[in-house]
């Protein structure tokens, strides 16, 4: 019943036939996926369906047991760890549900972190970081540490951090999972707006329909397979 995903032609990031098991637990069993530049794709599905694993595979954090992940001309699943790290550092941005900010660094330093990992000078990095914080309406928190700001603020700081390197793909894993509706909506609005501004693709893992409503397209992961919903219902 699994349909092949939207045609990978012109796609920025495409995965085919992904398999991944953690010990006896099968997380992915032949999942396909693709995303185009500037597209926001929601990955939905019940808990434990493998949607986070799909995201981890797509982002090159986890190497799938089988299948390929193509980013442009490169096969992520074949790259060595160092190159995948470099790719994540330069081309991808990440937002997670919680606990992603380094607790000892100030918000500004947290946002500047990816740039500094790329070798940008501290002053320059923090300048750009400040710009992103302003864009995410959280510049007030720049001097504070993650423990001293609210959950909504810290998610916006996290989004700012994901955006700071102007990535081509932003991976967001339940970015609003720990937030109330209003804060969640705000984060989603800012995230999708910023992504559209920069033509970044967004892979958005969520189980909330209202969050998924910010996407252009949705993929449902069920039993380790990804089902592209664009074609459903037209038959």
């Amino acid at each position: 019943m699994t349909r092949s995903p939207a045609a990978p032609s012109g796609s920025l990031l495409a995965a085919a036939g992904l398999h991944k098991a953690y010990g006896p637990t099968t997380a992915l069993a032949g999942a396909d996926f693709s995303v185009h530049p500037g597209e926001v794709v929601a990955v939905m599905g019940p808990s434990g369906s493998g949607k986070s694993t799909l995201l981890h595979c797509l982002a090159g954090i986890v190497r799938p047991d089988a299948g390929t992940v193509r980013y442009g001309a490169r096969d992520l699943s074949a790259l060595p760890d160092a190159e995948r790290s470099a790719l994540r550092r330069t081309e991808f941005g990440f937002v997670f549900q919680f606990g992603q900010l380094v607790p000892e660094l100030t918000c500004l330093e947290n946002v500047a972190l990816p740039l500094r990992l790329n070798g940008v000078k501290r002053r320059e990095a923090e300048l750009q970081a400040l710009h992103r914080l302003e864009q995410l309406e959280v510049a007030d928190a720049r001097g504070k540490r993650p423990g001293e700001i609210s959950g909504g603020q810290s998610q916006r700081v996290a989004v700012a951090r994901a955006l700071v390197t102007t990535p081509r793909v932003i991976f967001a894993d339940e970015p609003t999972g720990a937030l109330d509706s209003l804060n969640g909506e705000r984060v989603m609005r800012l995230l999708t707006e910023a992504a559209r501004d920069t033509r970044a693709a967004v892979v958005l893992v969520t189980h909330e329909a209202r969050v998924a409503a910010y996407s252009d397209r949705e993929v449902v992961v069920r039993d380790g397979r990804a089902r592209d919903m664009a074609g459903v219902g037209l038959s």
Partner: peptide, 10 residues
């Protein structure tokens, strides 16, 4: 935080 750092490419 460490896992996230690594995920971000650190």
């Amino acid at each position: 935080a460490l896992s996230v750092l690594v995920a971000c490419g650190t």
